[in-house]
Design a protein around this nucleic acid. Structure first.
Length: 1018
RNA sequence: GGGCGAUUAACUCAGUGGUAGAGUGCUUCCUUCACACGGAAGAAGUCGGGGGUUCGAAUCCCUCAUCGCCCA
């Protein structure tokens, strides 16, 4: 064997061997009737590559997976990818641009999607390959993709089902709008960042020059300020949105403004002659202590304002287009302002205000920031800024202020709340079962604190916007047709047939584009065609004979319909009449499809054997950041669809940070690439580090020093095997099962092994990966590689052939157990050692996980003996080192006192003790002059080293030891002399304290006696 | 503003009622025939401050301080 494990070479070879042998396939190594154990991978983004978070997440999943597989459970770890609408579309568009292609829109949808699939085939999903380097034992033969034909059918089927049940609806609501990608995005894709901004303070004059007493009072009700005002003061960070204000709101309890609630005030911007008046309303939302206490309400451009507007019937005036420029469509400013004024005065119902464009002509088409500058300068020019004093006299009051601003995490542009037509899931109707399932324990969320986050979010759930204005994704299975029932065409004769004139009227007078279309929902076009034909049947002839045809979009539909009418008019051939329908161009939110992940990857809606076997899945391992967005949605959706939870346990893990605790980010340059780390330290070291640091609910601060430490751990394990190989351990015939041992050291290590197996199982059972890793580390390095290997040396090289044979067998067994127990954490090095150290029936990945128990294998006598042996060796070593006895010197020893167990332990383990402590076999007698004293439980030893040692140093050393023993004894005595302790503490605790006290007292006595002798010398 | 969490050795972190632990670093010694990615010995902690409960508190409760995260 080499001195080190050649990770770089071996990992690829071993990974291939595992996969070639089908070791990871669903059900591999399952014993007959094995309990199903299944995990679906949180699907990485198809554009993604492995980062530390993935490495962490998948290491934990792999540990569970390998552990259960070795236990003989029927294991499926289902891998796959998420199609990631925005991210993928962005990547492909960028690629196309780089290659000098025409843009997406010029290319057209069909062609573009071809390009996306080409890209996917070439460079999509590299992360799956990278998972192999990590050692992830997923069933790669089952790799799934949210855009697989099967998955697509499932997703569209779900949409239709939920639509039919009324759980999905179309509506106009405020959504997060990304002006760069021109699509709605989810909250998850919005990053709130604090940026430098400004707060402007403006005066909104009261209508008709009205005035009021503005009074401020302190906490005791004393008037601190009073003036007559003809305005209300408003603070805003976004002056351009003032154009769309629908009201000014104050808190109902705010006495300052009580006199003017219900009055109208004027928005101080826009052409003078069409100044808009808006009402002052009372609402709970404004914070009286913040700013002036009055808030302008722009319902179409702010989420808080939207709520206020909804509650108070304030119209929502949209100001921006899809690129977040000031609108230039719709009515003129004059017409718009007039209508808005009528609405504000209650002279007109608000109704559909989408044609009202309150952007003054001089600002139409401007970027929102340019518009902001214009608005500010116009208000200042008019003297309607709140003023403040400065060195140069009064100036407009503008505070420099940190403000939270939403940014698109992909586009990095400021996100706009935007009022648009979107599809929504009526989450309120499916949230109940998802809450109940966690409340009653059908699904358990770990750590428990994260269940609180889950509850909090679900209890306050908002409708879920599921449409995205993208091309890459599941196109919404809804088709629209012109609404011919809208009732504007007339059948003058009432004969249920349209004559030429009536058709011409229909053709020339209708603006189909402006009308809200009819729609039907089905998984495909065939499905909606019948529904539309049904609609037509109710129309007058000849429209009721129109053919339903599919066209590209609404515009094409209007044209085709007009053309059909014209053709019919000329030919009177009813077959020329067409009723064109077009499909909703939008796609579904990627989370909608990944919400189906557990069911969809297992073949649902078909009733597959996998579904029967592995659903609900056992565990979901995922990051805390997507509890809402993914976990909650999967819960809601699986429960809504099959009335069953998607998983039994959700293990929520924290973030991997850099060693200083900073979030890893490309801009900070503190990103640790797991692939680099794997190349440098090996996958095993990276995995073990992540597992060892996976304390539940706490972020990991990852340092390479720690990884190096666990790489060294792997080397340690490797070299223990190398030692064993050199001592014939692997050549000797192996025992069947657990070897029968006679020597205390061998009986002891077998017992210790049983303990650690129980500890690892218990830790993994409760998802304490760090506990399992740390226990293994302490055992493999601290017990096996240190003590047991050292103890074995005299036995393996000794003359007692029987003992040698026994030790070889026990060591072979113990090392095998180390490999088995370590395998889920360090799969590569353990598999390699497994293969090199014996001819095996199965690879380690399929080795049987042990079930032996400490209660059967621990031998108390051997254990006590080995503890004593270790204490003696450590005592001698410590004394020697502190008194600078040359390391290589083997020293004589006199045993000055010893009880029977000590004598027995010494007799049985002398060979190891003499070698490890570097002492000669002891003689018995009184302590010679100038000797070092070593006290062990039940015995005292003297190492005669007169002339070699410093008497004063030895006195100091023993005094320290005696004092320490005395101090501990005193503490124990104090406790034991307290009757309440003896009464109320557990019996074994009291007993332990008593034993401990006796030992401490004995130790102190031994040391004091030795000290007394020494003092005579000094 | 609301919620959650953290504060333990120089650093990074375990440790949920019974004698304070690990990895890394540090000091001294050792290239002893598995391993210097090693071995031996050692130094190093008022367990953030204060109060309380308890026979007993790093651990439970209250409070303060500092830091972090989530939500507004």
């Amino acid at each position: 064997m080499d001195k080190n494990f050649g990770a770089a070479e071996a990992e690829a070879r071993i990974a291939k061997a595992w996969e070639d042998s089908g070791a990871f396939k669903a059900g591999a190594n399952a014993r007959p009737g094995g309990t199903p154990f299944s995990i679906v991978i949180p699907p990485p983004n198809v554009t993604g590559s492995l980062h530390m978070g993935h490495a962490f997440n998948n290491t934990l999943q792999d540990i569970l997976t390998r552990w259960h597989r070795m236990k003989g459970d029927d294991v499926l770890w289902q891998p796959g990818l998420d199609h990631a609408g925005i991210a993928t579309q962005m990547v492909v568009e960028r690629e196309l641009a780089k290659q000098g292609n025409v843009g997406r829109r010029e290319m057209g949808r069909e062609k573009f999607l071809e390009k996306v699939w080409e890209w996917k085939a070439q460079s999509g999903g590299t992360i799956i390959g990278q998972l192999r380097r990590l050692g992830a034992s997923c069933d790669y033969s089952r790799e799934a993709f949210t855009m697989d034909p099967h998955f697509q059918r499932a997703v569209l089927g779900v949409f239709v089902k939920m639509y039919d049940e009324g759980l999905i609806y179309r509506g106009k609501r405020l959504v997060n709008w990304d002006p760069h990608f021109e699509t709605a995005i989810s909250d998850l894709e919005v990053e709130n960042r604090e940026v430098a901004g400004h707060m402007w303070h403006f005066k909104y004059p009261l209508a008709n020059g009205a005035t009021y007493d503005y009074v401020e009072k302190d906490a005791d009700g004393n008037v601190t300020f009073r003036e007559v005002r003809d305005y209300i003061s408003i603070a805003t960070t976004r002056p351009e949105t003032m154009l769309g204000d629908g009201a000014v709101a104050v808190h109902p309890s705010d006495a300052r403004y009580a006199p003017i609630v219900g009055q109208l005030c004027e928005i101080p911007v826009g052409p003078k002659e069409h100044r808009r008046l808006i009402p002052i309303i009372a609402d709970e939302y404004p914070d009286p202590t913040f700013g002036s206490g009055a808030v302008k309400i722009t319902g179409a451009h702010d989420f808080n304002d939207y709520g206020v507007a909804q509650r108070n019937g304030i119209p929502l005036y949209a100001l921006m287009d899809t690129k977040a420029r000031m609108r230039s469509d719709g009515l003129s400013y004059e017409e718009s302002a007039t209508l808005a004024g009528q609405i504000a005065r209650g002279e007109r119902e608000a109704g559909d205000v989408s044609q009202i464009n309150l952007v003054p002509e001089d600002m139409r088409g401007l970027d929102r920031l340019e518009a902001r500058r214009l608005v500010v300068s116009q208000i200042e020019a008019e003297g309607l800024s709140v003023m403040t004093d400065s060195a140069e006299g009064p100036v407009p009051f503008v505070e420099a202020k940190k403000i939270m601003q939403p940014f698109g995490d992909r586009s990095n542009v400021v996100i706009e709340p935007m009022l648009t037509d979107q599809w929504f899931v009526d989450t309120a109707r499916i949230v109940g079962p998802a809450l109940d399932a966690v409340r009653d324990g059908r699904t358990r969320i770990l750590p428990e604190r994260d269940a609180k986050v889950y509850f909090h979010w679900l209890e306050n759930i908002e409708p879920w916007c599921i449409s995205r204005q993208l091309w890459w994704g599941h196109q919404i299975p809804v088709w629209y047709g012109l609404d011919l029932h809208a009732g504007q065409f007339t059948d003058d004769e009432g004969d249920d047939a349209l004559d030429e004139v009536e058709i011409l009227t229909l053709l020339t007078q209708r603006d189909f584009v402006g009308e809200e279309p009819r729609h039907h929902c089905a998984v495909d076009y065939e499905g909606v065609r019948d529904a539309f034909m049904g609609d037509l049947a109710g129309l007058p002839a000849p429209l009721n004979h129109a053919r339903v045809v599919e066209v590209e979009d609404r515009h094409a539909a209007a044209q085709a319909f007009a053309q059909g009418l014209a053709d019919h008019n000329l030919s009177q051939d009813p077959t020329r009449l067409v009723y064109p329908v077009w499909r909703d161009p939008d796609v579904l939110d990627t989370w909608f499809s990944s919400g189906l992940w557990p069911l969809g990857t297992l073949g649902w809606p078909e009733d597959t054997p996998e579904l029967q076997r592995y659903f609900p899945t056992s565990v979901l391992v995922t990051g805390f950041d997507i509890i809402f967005f993914w976990v909650a949605r999967m819960m809601m959706m699986q429960l809504a669809l099959v009335n069953e939870v998607p998983f039994r346990t959700v293990y929520v893990h924290a973030l991997v940070r850099d060693e200083k605790g900073k979030k890893m980010s490309k801009s900070l340059g503190n990103v640790l690439d797991p692939l680099d780390l794997i190349a440098e330290y090996g996958a095993d070291a990276v995995r073990f580090t992540l597992a060892a640091m996976a304390a539940m609910g706490r972020d990991l601060k990852l340092s390479t020093a720690r990884i190096a430490g666990y790489r060294n751990f792997g080397t340690k394990l490797w070299n223990a095997h190398r030692f064993a190989e050199m001592n014939g351990v692997f050549q000797a015939p192996r025992a069947e099962g657990i070897p029968a041992a006679t020597a205390p050291v061998n009986r002891w290590i077998i017992g210790e092994t049983a303990r650690i197996r129980e500890e690892v199982d218990a830790a993994l059972d409760s998802f304490r990966f760090d506990g399992a890793a740390q226990a293994l580390h302490a055992f493999v390095w601290g017990v096996v590689c240190d003590w047991y290997v050292e103890f074995s040396k005299p036995l393996l090289s000794g003359s007692d052939e029987g003992l040698k044979r026994e030790t070889q067998q026990v060591m072979a067994w113990v090392l095998d157990q180390c490999l088995i127990l370590m395998h889920p954490f360090m799969p590569f090095i353990t598999e390699e050692l497994w293969g090199t150290t014996a001819a095996r029936a199965k690879m380690l990945v399929h080795a049987d996980w042990p079930t032996y128990r400490a209660i059967d294998l621990v031998d108390a006598g051997s254990e006590a003996e080995m503890r004593w042996t270790i204490a003696l060796i450590e005592g001698v070593r410590s004394a020697r080192a502190q008194l600078n006895v040359p390391a290589g010197l083997t020293v004589p020893v006199v045993m000055t006192e010893a009880d029977v167990p000590a004598r027995q332990a010494l007799a049985r383990n002398g060979a190891l003790i003499y070698r490890l402590a570097r002492i000669e076999a002891p003689t018995e007698g009184a302590a010679p002059r100038g000797s070092i004293t070593v006290a062990t439980p039940g015995a005292t030893f003297a190492l005669p080293l007169e002339g070699l040692i410093d008497i004063q140093a030895e006195i100091a050393r023993m005094t320290k030891g005696a004092d320490k023993a005395a101090k501990e004894a005193a503490a124990l005595r104090g406790r034991l002399s307290n009757p309440r302790f003896v009464q109320s503490a557990a019996e074994e605790v009291v007993e332990e304290a008593r034993e401990n006290l006796a030992a401490r007292e004995a130790e102190e006595a031994q040391l004091r006696a030795a000290l007394a002798r020494l003092s005579e010398l000094a």
